[in-house]
Design a protein around this nucleic acid. Structure first.
Length: 875
RNA sequence: GGGAUUUUAGCUCAGUUGGUUCAGAGCAUCUGCCUUACAAGCAGAGGGUCGGGGGUUCGAAUCCCUCAAAUCCCA
């Protein structure tokens, strides 16, 4: 059969993915006989499409899952999506707008109908894309955070925490969009520089004819002032401490307070404090127990609390107030000023900081086990540097605002009563019953009004590692078999950006509802960035299309490309060169297969390299030990690199070259069997990284029985290896490289064969590898001796090697080279001797270190001797 | 403003409790090869005073201080 010289991934990938699914290799069910290995996917946004971050993240998960599966564990990777209330609602609103429908014209039910329609249409796309990447998820377990049972769990948790007294209602300042009449998250606010004015306004002191002057950009809010604040150390205002002033126009008395928040350099050094309309002022208000006076309605007009200009828009009011202040002589100065003003991403209205009643979860107690168990490494973060960040956050954690002014999500199960109270219950009927019991009066169902808000998306995804297995445990039921078997999960792979939003909260929920951690290890990936260091995002348009990449480079190429340069916790500066390297690697493996597949086996064929097998056997074990160590420490990039070098350098460049028969000649059966066996073993190591090409070659290398697939083949067992063999071979390889080097430097063709003469203490080393040495360096013989006429010489470790090159030798140049090396080695020896002659070193350093230094000394001395001999022969 | 992390070859990163071969890898670069597995390749080579300065130590990329730069989180 004629095989293409290039690996063609596309057909292979579809074929094997279908095969794996058809055979049910991704499926996991409870099996107490086997050790479970569980991973829950960080649920991507249901309306999202695959981006580079998902590619990296899910490749890593798939590597871990596939390796565990090959190790014989019951590997269970649970896929799913989350409802992402803000993002999804924004998309649905945008879709409706395109159809000419305003959200405000719809009822809640109508809107949700459209939202579900959207979800049904687009919700599965991202999971389908993950299949192209090769993700070996148990698709039968696919979950969605708004599935009926998962939603029930969220509501149960809200009720439970409310009854435990951990959930309360409180005031919080939000970004308010007066045009959209909705609260915005910080991400939806765009800050722009706006040309405005700084108004200098004087306030009269209550007990004298004096005035003080403040500077503000928002004169229309003076009616909401609760105090005037000065810096406690500001010498200009010491006389004002403890006194009171009148707000101009409305003549309300407010105190002068001191707080170091005030910037003495800015404005006049006197700050008007308006707790209802500025976040910093709100905090000053809390510290000084100031009243909160809210003068703005939800549409941005002044309300009755303002006393004057009621019903005017805030910007109209600003101009009118300025005029009124001027008329009364209170406006001293208006200076131009540029300020940063938040605008609504969607309506472009100026965002108003606004106090609103929100639901909060108390964090003081629920964080305790989550904090302790990470600090004590019960749950390990990889890399551990994130522990510091985690601690900083957990030590300064604030109560969690869990309500959102949206419709898409889990509606808060609180029901308001006509008497101003509310009850929390799973259903309206239950709420009615509780209300009647609690207040001893009867209510009609329509008396109850359910809270309009939904819960923060994280309030459902924090349950994810539990709720994908068991949704009833939150209602107080005993854990089911699934939860008992699969939980705690093993590894979680996610981005550091959501270490607090998601990871920490999952840990809290895990301990709260099971008393047990949700996972053992958290692998934190980096962010995929472009060459300029910018985060890849759709809006910047700097992200390649992942599916196009897979099409162009193959899924295996893309997977390895992403992993080559992404140690845990480090950002990945993406470069198409990386996936090109991945593709080249797949091609290299493909061509190694072509070589082996092309061999004809013959009983009479000569064994090329008897020592090759035992060398590679040991080399493989050494690499395997290293790979296992890397995996254990979650150094996935390093595990890949070690595998890469084992395959490319050791297997292809050294081993296959050793055993390869001369052109068009057959290979002996023993070497062939051994080579196919090695090939199978390297395919196993490669499989987690490159599942498709390895499965393809697994089947192409031998005839397989039904169900003998690489995806479920056994991971190679770690065995001891002999470092002496590796050392011997390394010495031989060094000699080969030196000979090639001499050829390269002298412009001698690799086809010209030589006799190598070696002066060594370890002749057996050379006889054992004689065939290999001759083959790889193109020698006609290897002899031993200390002198060769007309030869060029070089020293490898302590061994002196001679190649007879006749007239091609430039004696003067050779001498120079050797003298240079000699001087260098003498310098090195001197530094070692200096160390050894230092009594404090010999006394203080560990025995092993001193022994090493002595070895270095001996090696250097031997080398100097060999070099000096060479030099002597030249003269 | 508070906190965290990072700074090692052109790029991306290793470098384990300070001590093996005088700092390693991959990619990129340079040189020579279309040597029938692979030019998506083969063979070989060059490249770093470990961000700057100071200190501790017999010995520092590694520990301490200081300065500088970058990134991230919280406000």
């Amino acid at each position: 059969m004629a095989l293409d010289t290039k690996y063609q991934p596309e057909a292979t990938e579809n074929k094997w993915y279908a095969y794996w699914q058809e055979k049910g290799f991704f499926r996991s069910t409870v099996d107490p006989e086997r050790e479970p290995y569980t991973v829950v996917i960080p649920p991507p946004n249901v309306t999202g499409v695959l981006h580079m971050g998902h590619m990296l993240n899910n490749t890593l998960q798939d590597v871990l899952v596939r390796k565990a599966r090959m190790e014989g564990k019951n590997a269970c990777w649970v896929p799913g999506t989350d409802h992402a209330s803000i993002a999804t609602e924004a998309k649905v609103v945008a879709m409706l707008k395109e159809r000419g429908i305003e959200k405000s014209s719809l009822s809640r039910e109508e809107f949700l109908h459209y939202a579900w329609e959207w979800k049904e249409k687009y919700g599965g796309i991202i999971l389908e894309q993950l299949k192209k990447l090769g993700a070996s998820c148990d698709w039968e377990r696919t979950k969605f955070t708004m599935d009926e049972d998962l939603s029930g769990a969220v509501i149960d948790v809200f009720i439970d925490l409310y009854r435990k007294g951990k959930i309360y209602r409180g005031v919080r300042m939000v970004n308010w969009d007066p045009a959209g009449k909705t609260a915005l998250s910080d991400d939806e606010v765009i800050t722009k520089e706006v040309a405005s004015h700084l108004y200098h306004i004087r306030y009269q002191l209550a007990d004298s004819e004096e005035f003080l002057t403040i500077a503000t950009t928002r004169p229309e809010t003076i009616m909401a002032d609760s105090a005037i604040c000065v810096h406690p150390e500001d010498s200009r205002f010491q006389h004002l401490h403890g006194r009171e002033v009148y707000i101009p126009l409305i003549k309300r008395r407010i105190p002068v307070i001191t707080d170091s928040y005030v910037d003495m350099e800015f404005g006049t050094g006197c700050l008007k404090v308006t707790p209802a309309h500025d976040l910093n002022d709100y905090e000053i208000g809390l510290r000084h127990k100031l009243p909160v006076i809210d003068i703005l309605a939800e549409d941005g007009r002044l309300n009755a609390q303002a006393e004057i200009l009621v019903g005017e828009d805030r910007f109209v009011a600003r101009k009118k107030i300025a005029k009124m202040l001027e008329a009364e002589g209170h406006l001293l100065q208006v200076e131009p000023y540029t300020s940063n003003v938040g605008h609504s991403e969607r309506t472009d209205a100026v965002v108003e900081p606004r106090l609103s009643l929100q639901w909060f979860l108390k964090m003081d107690e629920i964080t305790q086990p989550a904090f302790r168990n990470v600090m004590e490494d019960v749950i390990q973060l990889h890399p551990p540097k994130f522990k510091n960040m985690y601690r900083a956050w957990m030590e300064n954690v604030r109560d969690w605002c869990i309500s959102r002014q949206l419709w898409w999500g889990h509606r808060i199960p609180a029901y308001y009563l006509p008497n101003g109270e509310f009850v929390v219950a799973k259903t309206a009927e239950e709420a009615l019953r509780i209300a009647e019991e609690t207040y001893g009066q009867s209510f009609a169902p329509e008396d109850l009004r359910q809270d309009e808000d939904v819960l923060d998306t994280w309030f459902s995804s924090w349950l994810w590692p539990l709720s994908v297995f068991d949704t009833r445990v939150f209602g107080g039921e005993a854990p089911n078999e699934e939860l008992k078997y699969y939980y705690p999960t093993n590894d979680l792979v996610t981005a550091p950006e959501i270490l607090f939003f998601w990871v920490a909260r999952m840990i809290m929920a895990g301990y709260e509802y099971t008393g047990e951690k949700p996972f053992r290890n958290v692998y934190l990936t980096g962010i995929v960035r472009d060459k300029q260091g910018r985060k890849m995002s759709k809006s910047l348009g700097n992200s390649p299309d992942p599916l196009a990449l897979i099409r162009d480079y193959g899924a295996d190429g893309v997977r390895t490309g992403m992993l080559f340069s992404s140690p845990a916790g480090n950002d990945l500066p993406f470069d198409e060169k990386l996936v090109e390297q991945g593709r080249n690697f797949a091609n290299k493996i493909w061509n190694a297969f072509r070589l082996v597949k092309g061999w004809e086996v013959s009983e009479t064929a000569e064994v090329q390299a008897p020592a090759a097998g035992s060398w590679f056997e040991n080399r493989f074990q050494a690499a395997l030990a290293e790979i296992e160590d890397h995996f254990e420490k979650f150094r996935i990039s390093d595990a890949l690199m070690t595998t890469y070098k084992l395959v490319w350098d050791d297997f292809c460049s050294w081993y296959l070259e050793m055993v390869k028969p001369p052109y068009q000649q057959p290979i002996d059966p023993v070497t062939y069997e051994q080579t196919v066996g090695f090939f199978e073993r390297v395919l196993k190591l490669l499989h987690p990284f490159m599942p498709f090409i390895t499965e393809e070659l697994w089947h192409a290398l031998r005839d397989r029985e039904e169900g003998d697939a690489l995806i479920v083949a056994s991971w190679p067992k770690k065995e001891t290896f002999d470092p002496a063999i590796l050392q011997d071979a390394a010495q031989i390889f060094d000699v080969v490289t030196q000979i090639r080097n001499v050829r390269s430097a002298k412009g001698i063709s690799p086809k010209e064969a030589f006799v190598l003469t070696v002066n060594t203490q370890q002749e057996t080393r050379y006889t054992a590898y004689k065939a290999i040495l001759m083959k790889l360096a193109n020698l006609t013989d290897v002899q031993f001796g200390s002198e060769v006429e007309g030869a060029i010489s070089f020293v490898v470790k302590a061994d002196e090697c001679f190649l007879p090159l006749g007239e091609q030798i430039d004696l003067e140049k050779e001498r120079e080279t050797i003298e240079k090396e000699l001087a260098y080695t003498k310098g090195f020896l001197a530094s070692v001797q200096k160390k050894l002659s230092n009594a404090r070193f010999v006394a203080g350093a560990p025995e092993q270190v001193v022994a090493n230094e002595r070895q270095k000394q001996a090696d250097a001395e031997a080398k100097i001797k060999a070099l000096e001999e060479s030099l002597q022969k030249l003269s």
